[in-house]
Amino acid sequence: MTALTTEAGSRGSEPVELPWRVLPDYQCFGCSPANEHGLRLQFRHTPDGGIECPLEFDRTFESYPGVVHGGMSATVCDEIMGNLLVLRLGVSVFTTSMRTRYIEPLRIGARYRCTASTDAVAGDQGPHTAHAQITDAAGQAVVFVTGSYQPVTPEQTKARMAMSDDEIRLVDEALSALRAD
């Protein structure tokens, strides 16, 4: 069973191809389509240079009856902000802090949209700031998040992630392609 559903053809343009998908056993909880227990987020580019994803949580992620656990909305926002920065900068980043403001609880079975934006520019050393918000079907913001992220080198990636040298090479090649664009 898919724990979180996403709708194809959201407002944005083309789907986002994340560099992690070059890994043969990619299992990210947030965005891997292969993780049967994950969120399976599907990002699309927005006209303003950000990314977005549609959301609809089922009861797998319930907190109070009929309410999505607040940690799930924070997870979605962290995932979308971090991936936006990776796409924008062409390097891996790690979250250093996040501030979340909840306006309304998310409801199980309701449709939402999460969008992320940043002013980060490739080549800057960081840390970088990104913003995310989750809006309901009426376009009202229900969650605001600001995150700070630190870029990491391939050597730091190797020390912090459980990846083989071949996997690091594959991801670095995919990131290099982003930097070349």
Score class of each variant (00 low, 15 high):
99 R>M: 09
17 E>M: 07
122 A>I: 01
66 G>E: 12
177 A>K: 11
64 Y>L: 15
24 P>N: 11
147 G>V: 03
95 T>V: 06
3 A>E: 14
129 T>N: 05
119 D>V: 00
105 P>I: 11
78 D>R: 00
166 D>W: 09
110 A>N: 03
19 P>Y: 04
74 A>S: 15
8 A>E: 15
106 L>E: 15
3 A>F: 08
38 G>T: 03
128 H>Y: 04
24 P>A: 13
149 Y>T: 00
23 L>M: 13
127 P>Q: 03
94 F>C: 11
167 E>P: 00
129 T>H: 12
116 A>Y: 00
133 Q>V: 05
33 P>L: 08
43 F>R: 10
59 R>V: 06
69 H>N: 11
34 A>M: 09
94 F>D: 00
5 T>E: 13
54 P>T: 13
67 V>G: 01
134 I>L: 10
132 A>W: 07
29 F>D: 08
35 N>D: 14
19 P>R: 03
10 S>E: 08
145 V>Q: 10
20 W>I: 01
9 G>K: 05
55 L>R: 10
29 F>P: 01
162 A>W: 06
25 D>A: 10
138 A>N: 05
178 L>R: 12
20 W>Y: 09
29 F>V: 00
18 L>V: 06
92 S>Q: 09
157 T>P: 00
24 P>V: 03
12 G>M: 02
21 R>D: 01
103 I>D: 14
91 V>H: 08
74 A>N: 11
110 A>F: 10
105 P>N: 03
158 K>W: 02
10 S>N: 08
78 D>G: 06
138 A>H: 06
150 Q>L: 15
64 Y>T: 03
166 D>P: 01
30 G>A: 14
75 T>L: 12
126 G>N: 11
92 S>A: 11
63 S>P: 14
53 C>E: 04
70 G>E: 12
114 C>Q: 01
161 M>W: 03
12 G>H: 00
78 D>F: 02
96 T>S: 15
154 P>V: 06
176 S>N: 13
72 M>S: 04
13 S>W: 07
59 R>D: 05
151 P>L: 05
171 V>E: 09
32 S>E: 12
6 T>Q: 14
107 R>H: 14
148 S>Y: 06
64 Y>I: 01
71 G>I: 06
36 E>I: 01
100 T>G: 01
53 C>R: 07
36 E>D: 12
3 A>H: 07
62 E>H: 04
100 T>Q: 03
136 D>Q: 04
30 G>F: 07
63 S>Q: 05
92 S>E: 14
102 Y>R: 12
167 E>A: 04
115 T>H: 01
50 G>K: 02
107 R>N: 11
151 P>G: 03
84 L>V: 07
6 T>W: 09
71 G>R: 11
129 T>C: 01
